[in-house]
Amino acid sequence: MPLTVIGFEGSANKLGIGIVRDGVVFSNPRHTYVTPPGKGFLPRETAKHHREWMLNVLKQALTDAGLTHADIDCVAYTKGPGMGAPLVSVAVAARTVAQLWNKPLIGVNHCIAHIEMGRLITSADNPTVLYVSGGNTQVIAYSERRYRIFGETIDIAVGNCLDRFARIIQISNDPSPGYNIEQLAKKGNKFLQLPYTVKGMDVSFTGILSFIEDAAKNKTLMAEYTPADLCFSLQETLFSMLVEITERAMAHCGSQEVMIVGGVGCNLRLQEMMEIMANERGARLYATDERFCIDNGAMIAQAGFEMYRTGLKDATYEDLLEESWCTQRFRTDEVEVTWRDP
């Protein structure tokens, strides 16, 4: 019996709804809340955006897939981690359709969804995962029924560091600040030495952000360096650190596969650096593009699918509905991975 799952994602500024049937993505529309240059997205406005676009995106997901609600077997949504207000707005919508259509409702860990989508798309078997986005920076490997976090940022996420730098130099947020930094960095060639903070398999970014913030406001320095040079220097430094901690984790775990997921993961320079590192140690890189790297609904559906067919297969409709809450803090290693071999 094929299992068709619809997934609702809205933990940050992207609203995505996707439909997946047994590992095949039927549809995956997304709408992003884009703020003007110099401004980040705030919880209240982001939640409002999600509520306004919910029905449009949902209709599009069903139309693109050529399915009706009767074809859906299960509804999945992001339980966390993420921003409170947007999470709630999406959870309410998912809970509503689950009850309207009388389908089981499954709450999914956002980070796990990224990993499972990456594994589905790239067919990587047991990779060391670098998960990099606006809110997360983690190096993850699987063992004994958990995705275990080996390295992590000890302060802000790498995407957050890039986003905030984009705000300082007033780069457009359309389609995303990271993408625009990447394009601008291609024009930079003069390297400014920035702090480099690796602590074992952990990293820290706040010192770098303050340093480059000061640099961008320093008129004498900016007579020598262009904003493009700063983007270039920032990217090179941040990504070197990320590749380094990933390599440390791979050496520590003896892993020969590496996968990048999360929004920052679609940066081609990061992918290129990771590939060189992987080749140097005879390992293989798996990466995806913006359709699946950036938050989307299909990834929630895919993780929900894995949970529904294994750990939750005997759960009742009422139990699942009872369990359908959401939380801003939800660690990757809290979830028991029932769908993989121990």
């Binding site: 275990r148 976090i149 080996f150 000890i154 602590k199 074992g200 398999m201 952990d202 520590h252």
Partner: peptide, 28 residues
């Protein structure tokens, strides 16, 4: 290779934190 000299409790705390994280993730 990543060592340095410091008398700050902060640096020592982070050193132990790094070990704790690596320890718990490597050995369930």
């Amino acid at each position: 290779g990543l060592s340095f000299s410091s008398s700050l409790a902060e640096d020592k705390g982070v050193d132990l934190y790094v070990l704790e994280r690596a320890f718990l993730s490597t050995h369930p």
